[in-house]
Amino acid sequence: MVIIKKNRLIISGLIIAALLFFSHLIGILRPVENFLFYLTKPIAGRFYKTGTDLKIAYDESNTQENLNAKVERLTKEVAVLTVADSRSLEIEEENRKLREALKFVGNNNSRVVVASVIAKEAAAEDSLGLIINRGAKDGLAAGLAVVSEEGLIVGKVLETKDTTAKICLTTNRNCQLAAAIQNSNRTQGITDGDLGLTIKMNYIPQLEKITPGDIVITSGLGEHIARGLVIGRIATVYNESNEVWQSATIEPLVNLNNLTIVAVIIP
């Protein structure tokens, strides 16, 4: 009794914490939680954008000397891509005419939900993903593809609450995607994040010919994620003649650490 009297403040604090926990568990607090989310999501989004802008400015100031080389490389890439784009436009037009001729009906009814990143989810040793300001009430569900403003896939939805969702980035461990390489064999495999920096594709048969620069896209074999979303480009191929498998690291084509606006594709 003396111990309880001496520590009554601590015990009161623990009781309040326990009450909050059980109230959340049985759902009484949900209207209050949704109201608090409604109030604070715009503020959190603003803070996150400011923090990310600071991060971009800090990173750019450290890599000034690489920028000229990067500009030159990108100018050449633009020229190559312009040629490829014009060819693909021709193929698209041909495809459309053939579909009309065969009366082939496409089934692309997907819609896109645009979301702002409002926070990062931090775990013990690394960041596990981003939190966005759209949730189950906007039609989001676990497993949906998340793309950047440029249309490149940057991750997928892991969990949803009513008005927020957690997404994992393609560079996070355990964020796996069914992928295909745009090479002559159309090699298929699973990509997985590596240390939050790059993406790896393991267990590629030795007979498959893959080269640095090949584009990796989603294969469409994963649930909820359509085929054709660009994951990245093959950076390095690890091929030992005495190994059964080869592996490759994939470089994302956007900086995944500076995302502030994303879109979720709902099939």
Binding site: T40, A44, G51, L54, K55, Y58, I118, A119
Partner: peptide
């Protein structure tokens, strides 16, 4: 305290 919490998970974690 609410402000500190929001700054922690939105602003601080976005920094370099």
């Amino acid at each position: 305290f609410s402000g500190v919490a929001i700054v922690q998970f939105s602003f601080v974690l976005a920094l370099p």
